[in-house]
Design a protein around this nucleic acid. Sequence first.
DNA 1: CGCGGAGTTGATGATCTTCAAACATGGTGG
DNA 2: CCACCATGTTTGAAGATCATCAACTCCGCG
Lengths: 223, 223
Amino acid sequence: MLVRTSAVCARPPAGMLSALAGGQIFSSEFRYRRGEEVFGEGEEAQYVYQILSGAARTYKLLPDGCRQINSFHLSGDMFGLENGASHRFTADAVVETNVSIMKRVSLLDAMTRYRTGPGSLLSLVTRNLVHAETHMLLLGRKTALEKVAAFLLEMDERLTHPAVLTLPMSRRDIADYLGVALETVSRTLSILKDEGLLQFYGPTQRRVVLLDREGLARLEAQG
Amino acid sequence: MLVRTSAVCARPPAGMLSALAGGQIFSSEFRYRRGEEVFGEGEEAQYVYQILSGAARTYKLLPDGCRQINSFHLSGDMFGLENGASHRFTADAVVETNVSIMKRVSLLDAMTRYRTGPGSLLSLVTRNLVHAETHMLLLGRKTALEKVAAFLLEMDERLTHPAVLTLPMSRRDIADYLGVALETVSRTLSILKDEGLLQFYGPTQRRVVLLDREGLARLEAQG
DNA sequence: CGCGGAGTTGATGATCTTCAAACATGGTGG
DNA sequence: CCACCATGTTTGAAGATCATCAACTCCGCG
């Protein structure tokens, strides 16, 4: 594994994590191969992570092996920061991923200087909570079509509406995020393609062009 | 509506809310009739609530009228405290309910004296997050049987394992909490009764005796 | 007593899952 | 550079689960 250690400078290259700390905090860069575990559920939460490139997923497993992905973490996202001492999820890399790592205690210490701002720990936890609540509504009360439309719009927004949406995750990942079978995701995407709401770009099926965002939004809102 | 205003004394009658503030904070008692709205989604989050008796539910609605209940709030529970300025849910009373109300700003102000403790705002938000994450797993990856078993065990635990579990909420409420149809809840409860895992107590169907908690736990964990 | 809300139960059908097969893709090694 | 293999994706068919529609029962209350 490639490891580079560096003192974060005042103008950080990739933002939030070190910006939160107001600079002057040591962090390391770390690389994970696709599928590699970043941390496991129940492990001590010693480090905090920020995606520099690539993507990670955090999830829980049921005894029968069923997986529920709670969220995807894309470039710039921070994850693994817990209030308690241990991780409530497993996290691993969706694709080859570079992360910036720093010690939890250093970050928390630095954060106490910014208790109330948008970069505070409380704001981070609240953002996670808002996401979780929105996702509960999706999981509990939406059809497969609505779920997939919502997923596409979420990714589109988080990647700031690119012309071509490049999804780092597989159909299985999407399925485990939306609480449906992977075949259902595939079928639903085909339907959306046939209806002219999207098209695939290039040879791979992971590059998507959203042709009708308003149409998708209508689908998402109501069956 | 009945309203009584009182200064909270150093030994508060019903606990957390005023205990958090370390006493010396003014709160009022308020009564809601069953079904009455406590606050609406998007409204300004001016007050914080604690259940003295009864129960409340917080939920979101889809455009088509579908409801997803995020959580039930039972005696002693606090709810309605937001990090942002507005409520992300609607809340209403499940049954006739008495709550203790205090101003959000007073509480937040008082809380700053207990920034890191288990009574801090951060801990509250984190507890909500943990609940939401657990519920996401339930909504996304569990069968109706597993959902109902999980619900019964959750209520059993939160009411500290009473001999007779008195559910304040209707079958429809349970259904909207678990993301299934109300008929499915009813059917599933009948199955659990026929299998000898529970029985109803008295004339009403809202009093449940859990005859085999371990059996329910096995059902919850895996299909 | 009768009315209304809540709950149960049955029948039917839609949606989604599962099983299975075919096809595509991307990487690897000859 | 191409063949080959593992992995990922699509598509089809069959079946399970759950939702919906509907009828009926039960309980509480005026």
